[in-house]
């Protein structure tokens, strides 16, 4: 099948690549760009481990074709820290012990970024509902909620 040329921005850098239409965005990020910080935890769009931002909004990169990202701007966990400074959510996840094995963490943080962009001062229940598309098997979510609240308090939704 004919490959297609796409041009997109990932973590602030512009890339142009020929890709097979069937290539998923997450596979493009991991296998073509080597951005292995974005992980794959399921194949049915349930777990949210692969969450990245497209044009500033969270999506599951296992459920978007790379060709669909043509012309768009993608932010992954690897592009979140700026000038060597951790994003407030990254810092809060560490300080609140919001991760254990770390496998859900990239997606969890990226979804939290999107969540706070839409609701800068959420209630605990709103945080929980905002993370309903992300599964974590280690933390019981309690410290994740705490981390999002800490970051919200610090004005993470700049």
């Amino acid at each position: 099948m004919a490959s297609r040329t796409i041009t997109l921005t990932v973590d602030g850098v512009s890339y142009t690549d020929d890709v097979e239409p069937r290539l998923l965005l997450v596979q493009y990020l991991r296998e073509v760009l080597g951005k292995t910080g974005t992980l794959v935890g399921c194949d049915t769009t349930n777990c949210g481990a692969c969450t990245v931002l497209v044009d500033g909004e969270s999506i599951k990169s296992c459920t978007m074709l790379a060709v669909e990202a043509d012309g768009h701007e993608v932010t992954t966990i690897e592009g979140l820290a700026t000038d060597g400074q951790l994003h407030p959510l990254q810092k809060a996840f560490n300080e609140c012990h919001a991760l254990q094995c770390g496998f859900c963490t990239s997606g969890m943080i990226m979804q939290s970024v999107s969540l706070l962009a839409e609701n800068s001062r959420p209630t605990d229940q709103e945080v929980r509902e905002g993370l309903e598309g992300n599964l974590c098997r280690c933390t019981g979510y309690q410290n994740i909620v705490a981390a999002v609240q800490q970051a919200a308090g610090e004005g993470a939704a700049r």
Binding site: R30, K35, T36, G37, T38, L39, V40, T76, I77, E78, L80, A81, L86, Q90, F93, N94, L99, G102, F103, T105, S106, I109
Partner: peptide, 14 residues
């Protein structure tokens, strides 16, 4: 956490 919150993780599939 340092590597896990910044995407510098080293899972086998990487």
């Amino acid at each position: 956490d340092a590597r896990l919150i910044t995407g510098r993780s080293r899972y086998t599939d990487n």
